[in-house]
Design a protein around this nucleic acid. Structure first.
Lengths: 212, 212, 212, 212
DNA sequence: CATGAATGAGCATTCATTCAT
DNA sequence: TATGAATGAATGCTCATTCAT
């Protein structure tokens, strides 16, 4: 009797199969709209266009699926390229960074990701921590590195670049992000963002520009 | 001698009954630990030390109970008295305000409240909005009013006091609040808070102190 | 030591206390409107204007209260006096009886009693049986007795007076009672009743009048 | 020889799935025994031999399940074929109809259906109305049509055939149906039914046979 | 006797997960 | 591999009943 040797072996990296992507796409929409508890596997299966059983072929359980979604969001948000050319002057660069940063933060599913992850952080601390490290701290470090370069270039005078970077990032959110995420005001317009980012840039440079 | 006059009469408003407080205390802990969906009425009853049925004597349903708890948190957080004497100088006042503000925000159940409310804001917008108005916007307005007074006193030069107040409040959180709420770092120490608030105060005044 | 002899002893027949009546009145309305299962002790207490606890002072439980209500309804419906003078001629008497009978049967709470008792008869057979005996069979026997008298008076020729009485009573309901109780048609008007009773009387006498 | 063509294909309409029937069978027994409120979904699941969850795969909720059962009972009771050949003589036909009709009404679950539907009619009027229309009124109309044919054939002289049909149907129940449904007497024997139907037929024809 | 706060078993319903096909 | 029918534990909520006052 001939033992049948399979002609095609599933590649090890089948993790990236189209089906898996399809599931994650559907799941992301449902999780971000309804939160972890509000999302049902039924709804996710429907949104992904697969059967409920298939969900469990690709993901061990609801937690794993959610974790994978957040991981992917981390990857994507971490990949966003800001123009942080160390040779570029601070004012232009900060203005540009601020607007790009706020665009991400206030993008419908950007805000939802933050909200959804924050919501579950108490019960899934590793998910929260990972999101913080990969998205927030990562952006912060990139901006801090840029600021460090401008300090070296003598344009800026900053003691603690990470703190300064975070100060700038948070000032860019002032009056915009919190009302948006608490559903008190609609998503901010580009004009509102520009005005707040300009104000943040002004205040930042007033304090951190190197003295002549 | 027979005393037939009761010395203490239970107030007519049952809203303040001990039982109601007891339930809200237990429910707050459970809601803040597990989120709205994660908290079960069974668990809440156990935490409050009453039967499930009793919960429904005092609150119409889970939403009402949750709403009452958020409302109470709003009230308490809104009642915190900051020393915002309009005659007091900005540096001292901002330092004091910043520390007091961060103490509230980072108090174990302060952060949990913010997280829990933010988590449910998409599905219970009125709860999110109310929390934003009563807690965040309210603090912001109080600080903005103080800043306005210092502008009038010629100590500060600020265009948009509400924006400036929010910028200050957010800078006070820099590197502290987000890691804490995403479970990436433990609750900040008073020393950490003091350092960040000092930096925020310095940056703020560098930009907003009236020119001689 | 003197054993204190109570000055007022609760009379044995305290069953008829005003409170008891008050409770039964409220309970009857609720039971007849909502059925046994649909009626809650809370609603009954409210309708009766007493506290829930008081209900249990007078009645052991919900079943007992319901049983007492039905018993009372039996008593009342059994006491209704029809004009069944044995000397009166059959046509007039049957017409009168038929209308009076249908008035009772279709009276809002008459129908409700029948419906409510019938509904519960499977689970509380003794209640159903008792209602049948005291109300339906009883009316039937009274009419049968009258018919017997008219047979003796040679006006009628009937073999089985009980069967004949029941035939007449049911014919009086034709096209009126069932649609009413199944909610297919509103409660019949006196004119409708009169017409149906007249037809029943005609058919009855055509068959049972003694031949010359 | 290999047969690869399936001989029986499952029909597309899941409405007729075996599981659905199985559930309805179990549910019918429980609903008819305990009434709508008395029946619990737990009990129904047990009686049907499926899990509670499965109930909700096939029926949206308890009301839908109950409605489906009543609907099915309507269908079945409406489908019963009476021998109402318009050419057949009235006496034979009425006797046959009366017995068949009483067999249905007094069949164990016939009475239970009537009782159960009547019980819920106040709170689910559309269910009550539908049962009346499909079962009671429908039988009545078929008999009325037959009577109309015999009037045309000059065998009978009837003014209002629907009323006459109902009179006959109700007379067939005399002394049998009410005691049975109120649990005062057991289900009638065929002999008892025959006797009562014969009496009803006699009375009916005495009044409605066309005069020579 | 009368109260009404408190109870907890029971209800209808949902949903993450499994498994035969 | 993919399915979707089936499960049963868990949920929010109700209500008959009890009992300290």
């Amino acid at each position: 009797m001939v033992s049948s040797i399979p002609l095609a072996i599933v590649p090890a990296g089948e993790d990236d199969s189209a089906k898996r992507h399809q599931i994650m796409d559907g799941a992301r929409r449902v999780f971000m709209d309804l939160g972890f508890d509000g999302a049902s596997m039924n709804e996710i299966a429907r949104a992904a266009g697969v059967s409920k059983g298939t969900l469990y072929v690709y993901f061990a359980d609801k937690h794993s699926l959610f974790g994978a979604i957040v991981e992917k969001a981390c990857l994507e948000q971490g990949k966003v390229s800001f123009n942080l050319d160390p040779a570029r002057d601070a004012e232009t660069t900060l203005r540009g960074f601020g607007r790009a940063y706020m665009d991400i933060v206030c993008r419908p599913d950007g805000g939802s990701t933050i909200r959804t992850v924050m919501a579950i952080a108490e019960r899934m601390p590793e998910v929260g921590r990972r999101f913080y490290d990969r998205v927030i701290a990562h952006s912060n470090q990139r901006l801090a590195a840029y600021l460090g370069a401008r300090v070296a270039a003598k344009e800026l005078a900053i003691d603690n670049c990470e703190l300064a970077a975070m100060q700038f990032m948070l000032m860019c959110q002032a009056t915009l992000f919190q009302p948006y995420i608490f559903q008190a005001k609609p998503v901010p317009t580009p004009e509102q963002i520009a005005a707040v980012v300009d104000s943040a840039t002004g205040l930042f440079l007033a304090g951190y520009r190197a003295k002549a």
